[in-house]
Design a protein around this nucleic acid. Structure first.
Lengths: 344, 344
DNA sequence: ACACTCAGAGTGATCGTTCACATTCGGGGA
DNA sequence: TCCCCGAATGTGAACGATCACTCTGAGTGT
């Protein structure tokens, strides 16, 4: 008394039930060629009856297309906003792809090596690096090669390109602060193997120079709260800095806390700005002035680019969503110079 | 002049080059049976020479094992800490599995439906829900069925189980605060389809009762900052609440800001606690008292459970990492009753 | 000298789908 | 009537691995 095996139905079984050949069913599934109405009906009924689902593995075997993409999380992983990841995954699914994720820690060299292994595995049609991947560049899909797209991408001259690289809001920040009387700035930078961090740093330096302002220097170096805290903690008492431009919100929130611990009121003595508009930024005390970026559309547009590379289509004209400066409580007019300092 | 096709080498080609049968190479790759040293040498050389990599698709087709797991992100996705996801992905990889991710938004019903589709797709060996999945329960892998593990899992009586459900630290919080003189509490709860949120709520109510304290009530209902803000904003001026127990850090940070906006000093007038120990919690002003949970080991242990279910092995004795109460600046002694209130 | 065992290796079928090609059928023009 | 054409469908091989067998030859006990 063998009970029915729970094995899934195959194309042949559907064909047998419908009284047609397996090829007809296959064609039906791909909407190829015209069919007699009667055929359509019978095949549809058979599929329904057997609850048939095509076996993707077998299909992949024949077509050599796996439909699988992989996303590489940046290191450290906290630098990855979940909405970016989620948006990329959603678009992949909508476009008929599966998206795996791959965590690659370690120094740039190891990351590049593991990424290369992924590219060579032959299992993937495309790889999306959701962050910086120093030493590697985007490539389309060819016969035998896997496509690679990089969210934090740079060009031949190491200039940032792509949705993460737009640092123009930084000039706006500095102009705004200069308009409030600020003259001496500090930049807390991100890791310099990220082109977005480099772009912000460069825009900072350029703006300072163009506007005839002073920079006390540049601190930081990674994306962490600790780094931001240390930057402001280590600031000399007489540095004259009245505005701190952080490369992201984590750095800025760390800086905010350091200012608090030193008894420096923000923004009365020190103005601080961030970048990313984290959910918590708005509820910080004081609320953080920052640059709102649309993380979901960043993830989506990166995935769009990858899929174009996979399909060897021209790159979609990525309408990069403009990042938008949001002024909250952490920025304000520059403090009046203290009388004692004026006398000196 | 056809150049060498970039197609990957097959088992047969390796066998031909090594002068053995394809089966021998296959056995070699699986470490099956003894081999003559000479055979080993020749096969290894051939593999090296052709840079052979087994075709996972073909293997899957024959063995009916895909080696692919899927992780379902919770909704909203910001409720998912990246380290949890990353740790799960790492363990999957180390165990020889690939991990896809799948974003399923929408109400519980849709989520259950889409999850069921994933389970039925036949492409996956296991599915890990990184969050609540109301109406579905864990299942092992059988012939034709896909394993399912749920991070935020509950038992038959809707009691939370698993690593997320340990709410014992909540009692510790309340005992500590009671020791500081607090008598009247408010709970800001998470979404009640999460068993962890239910567990914290229940532990809150039980502790209040056991210790003979007062609860002003329960607010909140999702995991957002807005919800936490609203809970404290809406508190009556004369509620008598001196301590707010939030179900996670987002809620707590929102509450913190609301207290600030009402001019209620924290902790002098109101103590606030969170849960999760987000990176920003420590740098908040005031620094948030919270419960540190090891997100990485939560992700890892959930994945361990899934893999055990996939392999039909007994569940690993999950040494649930104990969550640890961290007292920072947002908690302190209860305020003295104001003279005016005493007179009334 | 014989059968037996076991290490070591080989043979052919098979998984479920798509590809390339062959076949059937009905109708319209010469 | 015959031929041809396109619509509609059928046939068999192939993708690259593993599974279930079969086969060979050297050693072993009697």
């Amino acid at each position: 008394m063998a009970s029915t095996p729970p094995r899934a139905a195959t194309l042949h079984e559907v064909a047998a039930l419908a009284g047609v050949s397996h090829q007809t069913v296959s064609r039906f599934l791909h909407n190829k060629g015209p069919f007699k109405p009667a055929t359509i009906e019978r095949v549809e009924a058979a599929i329904q009856e057997l609850n048939y689902r095509p076996n993707m593995i077998a299909r992949s075997m024949r077509t050599r297309e796996t439909g699988i993409l992989a996303a590489i999380l940046p290191s450290p992983v906290t630098a990855m906003p979940t909405p970016t990841l989620a948006a990329a995954a959603e678009l992949a699914r909508q476009s008929g792809y599966f998206m795996e994720i791959s965590v690659i820690e370690g120094p740039a060299q190891d990351r590049a090596k593991r990424t290369q292994e992924l590219l060579d595995s032959g299992r993937l049609e495309g790889v999306l690096a959701l962050g910086a991947l120093p030493g590697m560049s985007e490539q389309p899909r060819g016969p035998g090669t896997t496509a690679l797209a990089i969210l934090d991408q740079y060009d031949d001259r190491l200039r940032g390109i792509g949705p993460l690289a737009d640092a123009s809001a930084l000039r706006e920040i500095i102009e705004t602060l200069a308009g409030m009387g600020h003259r001496r700035f500090l930049h807390i930078q991100g890791p310099q193997d990220w082109s977005s961090a480099r772009a912000r740093r460069e825009e900072y330096l350029r703006s300072i120079e163009d506007l005839g302002l002073d920079s006390h220097g540049i601190r930081g170096g990674d994306w962490t709260l600790e780094s931001g805290y240390a930057a402001v903690s280590g600031l000399e008492e007489d540095s004259g800095v009245t505005a701190v431009i952080a490369a992201n919100d984590y750095l800025a929130l760390g800086a905010l806390r350091a200012a608090h611990d030193r008894g420096w009121p923000v923004p009365r003595r020190l103005s601080i700005t961030g970048w990313d508009d984290l959910p918590t930024a708005r509820y910080a005390v004081p609320a953080l002035s920052t640059v709102a970026v649309d993380q979901r559309s960043q993830g989506r547009s990166a995935m769009e680019r990858l899929i174009a590379l996979v399909r060897n289509e021209p790159a979609p004209d990525s309408t990069i969503p403009v990042s938008r400066l949001i002024l909250r409580e952490s920025t304000g007019p520059a403090p009046e110079p203290e009388p004692s300092e004026v006398q000196r």
